[in-house]
Design a protein around this nucleic acid. Structure first.
Lengths: 157, 157
DNA sequence: AGAGGCGATGTTATACTATATCAACCCCGA
DNA sequence: TCGGGGTTGATATAGTATAACATCGCCTCT
């Protein structure tokens, strides 16, 4: 995986790609890709942005797919635990995975203005593994998140 | 700064060191190192652990230093914004800075069993800067947190 | 001394994020 | 037909964080 940026691109493609990758993996592994789960993934894929659980819940509610917090959190837990989405700790929010299927240890670049999220190189993770090894620490999960300005918002400012 | 570990050490020293470093910096910069702020820093320094704002508030309350959430949050905001403490996003918690005074971009190693927090090497940050530069992204703040098992808890398990 | 400003604190209320719990349902296989 | 596993529905509550406004103490300027 190489650093990806904030280039514009055919976004229908992202959505179709993301959903069908998830569909395929669920079929393979005998997981249930239910309507709520599918819809939550679509909502996340519609933007390369971080969305709060309650933002998503609002959409679900408007569409009659569920109206209580656990509905959103369950779907998000499913997506995150199977690698179809990521949790952004810094924002207590969620974003669709940009590399569905790839076994990866993502680092995120989060724009504080437009909330766009990009998945960057795994190099920082390699360095973190090295530092941990030296300290005798066993990493089970790593959070690497940079917050700042994306190219577009830099230019606008 | 080099990777630090989980070695045992003279802990009185940590506390005295941390408090006096903060005291000195506040004097230099004309900041008010008030009783609540000092006490919160001490509480954090008493353990190399992440503590939630409400954990801290409980202690303050028991000591008559304040009983409402804003009291704790204000003190923590002060400490974090001046580099005397760090926020651990992964845990929604706080820990005293292990290198008071050093201008640093910390990476944390967080034990999920004992909640001990170590500040590790800055190398991952350098890699993150590199990835961001390639993407045209301007980093304003970075969160690098690894969660797992510290040497002691690994041995115990 | 008095007026005004500033930062810190006290207090109340509320917003936002997340999970526990239990009941109901559905599909599938024994 | 029965039972089990996983999903969903619904209520309640836990945990984290901030808005807003009043007050106070201290410093400074006049």
């Amino acid at each position: 995986m190489h650093p990806i940026g904030f280039e514009s691109h055919d976004h229908r493609h992202c959505i179709a790609e993301g959903v069908s990758a998830a569909e395929a993996r669920c079929a393979e592994e005998g997981l249930q890709f239910t309507p709520v789960r599918r819809r939550v993934l679509e909502i996340l894929l519609e933007q390369h942005r971080a969305m709060g659980a309650y933002d998503i819940l609002e959409v679900l509610r408007a569409e009659g797919l569920g109206s209580q917090p656990p509905v959103a959190y369950r779907a998000l837990d499913f997506l995150v635990s199977h690698g179809f989405a990521h949790r952004i700790e810094r924002l207590n929010a969620f974003t669709a995975c940009a590399y569905p299927g790839a076994d990866h240890a993502p680092a995120f670049l989060i724009c504080r203005l437009c909330r766009t999220v990009a998945e960057a190189s795994a190099a920082p993770r390699a360095q973190l593994d090295k530092a941990a090894a030296e300290a005798g620490f066993l990493i089970e999960r790593a959070v690497i998140e940079a917050e700042g300005l994306c190219p577009d918002c830099r230019n606008a400012a």
